[in-house]
Design a protein around this nucleic acid. Structure first.
Lengths: 225, 225
DNA sequence: CCTACCGATCGGTAGG
DNA sequence: CCTACCGATCGGTAGG
């Protein structure tokens, strides 16, 4: 398990990509090709011939599987958000009742999925304005649910006295945006493995919400500002 | 001063937009028009007729001021980054020698500029892949300088014992990305004024780096995890 | 600074 | 699933 290649391992541990097991093989090739092209060049910078060529087919063949180019983007964006929120909900549920363990679990899943799927992350970050109004509203609804998972956890922690912040909503956004950022620089074949990276982000998130434990209590000083 | 309209006040206090005082008036109209259009629809979703119409001129007239559509984007992106880094450097310099005051000043400027200029922020966040290689490298160099301003401040604070984190580089990225996110939701005419918002982000940033002061020391508990 | 226009490329479809 | 093609739109320019 620790001997498997780190990059291949990542998408197994954090399944947040566009692909689903029961996809038509040709549709899966289109989604993979489109995700790569759109992440690199943007939705309007990608044409249907690019997508077809990357998927090994003609541009006309795309329309046997998707109604339009915009339909492909909507599928990528929606599936990515659904995968993220679903996995985050499960992670929180499996973490038990301690808000500190729940926040750790949420950060681990959020960071892991964004590190494992930087293309989907980039699209969700930069291409949503190309969605039709209905798809856009749906994606935003999932994004709100993800934020609520974090916010409710933080509020629980505060009420139990294990977190100390009077702005849980801002702390939630602060942490989520910061964790999403890992997609921009993390490389699976780089110096730092994903578990180390996750541990660091958990530590930063705990500090942000003022977790009352070793992390924020070390080297106490009396020179209050 | 506190009686002036908050929205108009914002860009005065945080000058980070594309416009400069000595711009040709027609060039300024083009930059303003292009910034709005590109922030809304993306670079490839914006055509030169859109930009011209928003600026009250024909598309052909753009080429009296810019060499190409890509040249307009490069100008917007570069000027935005230069304004951000320059203002941040000054803010840090004027904050004195205390790393806590320096971090507060950096967060205030970074948050203020992104809140005051959400269009430039969106473009810097989502459209950089449309830049030519040279412009892209230049923008990234400025982004690295901004990160270094934060990282060096945090490292100073740690070495002086006023911050407590063993991962200053990750903390720096964490804070910068989180603060940049304010551009996505802050509205000058909303419920929370900018100074309150800045104060909250300063508080979150201080917690993130484990500032050893009242914020992270309140309600100490012994139930270490 | 505008009108008129250029060749190139776009998303999508007909027909097989 | 491919070839061939459609009308529409693109960035950019010539000429005034």
């Amino acid at each position: 398990m620790t001997d498997s290649p780190p990059a291949a391992d990542l998408t197994d541990r954090f399944p947040g990509g566009v692909l689903r097991g029961d996809d038509d093989p040709m549709a899966a090739r289109i989604l993979r090709a489109a995700t790569g092209a759109i992440a690199e060049k943007g939705f309007n910078g990608t044409n249907i011939r690019d997508i077809g060529a990357r998927g090994g087919m003609s541009s006309g063949s795309l329309y046997n599987h998707f109604g339009s180019k915009a339909d492909i983007l909507a599928t990528i964006a929606l599936r990515g958000m659904i995968a993220l929120v679903t996995a985050s909900q499960s992670a929180k549920a499996e973490a038990g009742s301690d808000p500190r363990a729940q926040l750790d679990a949420l950060v681990a899943m959020h960071v892991g999925i964004h590190a494992a799927h930087p293309r989907e992350s980039a699209i969700g970050n930069a291409e949503l304005h190309n969605l039709d109004a209905d798809s856009y509203a749906e994606v935003v609804a999932y994004r709100d649910r993800q934020e609520e998972l974090f916010t409710s956890t933080i509020e629980q922690g505060v009420s139990q006295g294990v977190f100390a912040t009077d702005i849980p909503r801002e702390a939630s956004r602060f942490i989520i945006v910061a964790c999403t950022g890992i997609a921009r620089w993390y490389r699976p074949d780089g110096r730092t493995d994903i578990d180390t990276m996750i541990a660091r982000y958990q530590q930063l998130a705990r500090s942000t919400v003022g977790e009352t434990s070793r992390q924020t209590m070390e080297s106490p000083r009396s020179d209050l500002r």
